[in-house]
């Protein structure tokens, strides 16, 4: 599929602010099944853009607005072509104990957040123990999590710990992913956090499909998060397979990846700091148009 993606954030400050320094991770990646055709980023007030690729290979744009201002607009436009990933073949549990697999997985095998002794977590973990293969375990995670947690905006914050999410039994895609990562890593499956865009209304079913059918290819979405798990393959090297615990299934051509990391903090869409009065308001939108 082909998409035009517009990421637009508008920060408004109560009074003049200065030295507004930010790092953006909003640029879609180029991968084996995704191609970035075009990307432009406009900043208001205008600022010089410093690009680099971070440790995990995500493209980062840093910029600073030093003069006093009351509004900051970040307007990014990307054109992306995606194709479905080849179906994973999957194989048995034996392979994930092999040195080659563990070496390929390394830091994605290490827990970043844990809730030792939490009953819900223990229950979910034991449910996965029964999976026939790593691939099955991954698919099971994608089923179990939305079954046990409510999708609820505002219930959690960007830095809510796993224990809190389990306590309230609700969260957003980011929390679902963090829980999934914990379950898979506990089972010895390397898994990483993926930040990106999804062409759908992630939390209320098939609105996007409906919109598309109705001849309205544009949808308002949010930035999205899902999991990539390292799955041993029958006749080849292990492969990273995308799975979306918010939408119960494998990631497909509607998923547009920005980058990945061990957890959210490695790939936040924006991280910034400024000097000035405390309060600001944010209007953020992502518009995806199927071309």
């Amino acid at each position: 599929m082909q998409f035009a993606i517009r990421y637009l954030s508008r920060y408004r400050y109560e009074a003049d602010v200065a030295d507004n320094i930010n790092a953006l991770r909003v640029r879609p990646a180029s991968t084996s099944c995704q191609r970035l055709d075009d990307f432009t980023l406009r900043l208001t007030p205008d600022a010089r853009q410093h690009r680099h690729e971070d440790y995990f290979g995500t493209d980062v744009v840093e910029f600073e607005v030093t003069r006093p201002h009351r509004e900051l607009i970040i307007d990014a436009l990307a054109h992306v072509t995606t194709e479905p990933a080849p179906a994973p073949s999957g194989s048995g549990w034996a392979q994930i104990a092999e040195d080659g697999y563990r070496e390929a997985g390394t830091e994605f095998l290490m827990q970043t957040d844990d809730a030792p002794g939490h009953t819900l977590l223990a229950e979910l973990r034991s449910a996965i123990d029964d999976a026939a293969s790593p691939l099955d375990a991954v698919l099971l995670v994608a089923e179990l999590i939305p079954g046990r947690l409510d999708y609820r905006k505002g219930a959690t914050y960007v830095d809510s710990p796993l224990a809190h999410v389990l306590d309230i039994g609700a969260g957003v895609c980011q929390d679902f992913v963090h829980l999934g990562l914990n379950l898979l890593r506990a089972r010895g499956i390397a898994a990483r956090y993926v930040s990106g865009y999804l062409y759908t209304h992630s939390h209320n079913g098939d609105a996007a499909a409906g919109a598309h059918a109705a001849g309205q290819p544009s949808v308002e979405v949010d930035t999205h998060a899902w999991i990539e798990a390292l799955i041993p393959q029958a006749d080849e090297r292990p492969r990273w397979v995308g799975v979306d615990p918010t939408n119960r299934g494998l990631a497909g051509e509607r998923h547009v990846k920005i980058g990945h990391g061990r957890h959210y903090a490695d790939v936040p869409p924006i991280r910034g700091i400024y000097r000035g009065p405390a309060r600001s308001t944010l209007e953020a939108s992502v518009t995806m148009t199927a071309l």
Binding site: E53, D54, Y55, F56, R102, E103, T106, E107, L109, M110, D266
Partner: peptide
Amino acid sequence: PWSLIVSRPSFARPVHG
């Protein structure tokens, strides 16, 4: 071993490269 290095809290990913 790489796994030992990446598990060190002092391993500084921001200065990779």
